[in-house]
Design a protein around this nucleic acid. Structure first.
Lengths: 104, 104
DNA sequence: CTTTTATGCAACTACGCTGTTGCATAAATT
DNA sequence: AATTTATGCAACAGCGTAGTTGCATAAAAG
């Protein structure tokens, strides 16, 4: 149902996580420490946010030596964006038709 | 910053609220009681969700007699969808350029 | 080999969110 | 006028989330 669907928007619905997503989109894959810079929170807090993003598939991680590289999964973000766009368009037509029906 | 931005996705990030948005999009404006049908929760719980949706501008309400009619604000939903779409496209180009740069 | 760096895991606190019940109000209905 | 219907408001419980600190580990650097 809408449960899984909602999870992605919930993941995006936190300022810290949205900022992380933006950073990954603007500058490409990076480590946890790079991501946490300027966020005003500890590394552990940031890690938790990254786990949330990973659980919904928005971010993937690769271990490289002692580092963990986090990467934005654009396909997933794109799918989430497209779903909203499609619904918005679809409902626009539907509600428009409903409106003209009620008026006419 | 991303705080206000995140609020909209957080509002969408709950199964009950997302279902309400879908219902409003599919069937047009309706009362709280119509909206709560089949959601498996009390009217009061549903009202709280509707307040959340209203606070971020996704839903507006009109009092008609003893009823309150809730309506989906498509412009706001559309804006939220467009923002995600735009970012997804923008980052796709950016990360693609970064990738070919690193490879080449 | 010692030290620094990057990270994970666990326990704990604080707070907010979701949902409930109970009561009050005000508009339709009969 | 009495009843039903649609709603709001407030207090409360439960639970999850966001954040912290502290300790452990393992790779890189010196």
């Amino acid at each position: 149902m809408s449960a899984q669907r909602a999870d992605i928007y919930q993941a995006l619905g936190d300022p810290a996580r949205l900022t992380m997503v933006e950073r990954l989109g603007e500058h490409g894959p990076m480590t946890t420490l790079k991501l946490v810079e300027g966020l005003g929170m500890t590394r552990q807090a940031a890690t938790k946010h990254l786990v949330v993003l990973e659980n919904v598939g928005l971010v993937s991680s690769t271990v490289r030596g002692r580092e963990v590289i986090r990467e934005l999964r654009l396909e997933v973000l794109d799918e989430a964006a497209a779903w909203l766009s499609d619904r918005a368009k679809q409902w626009d037509r539907k509600l428009d038709a409903l409106k003209t029906f009620l008026e006419g």
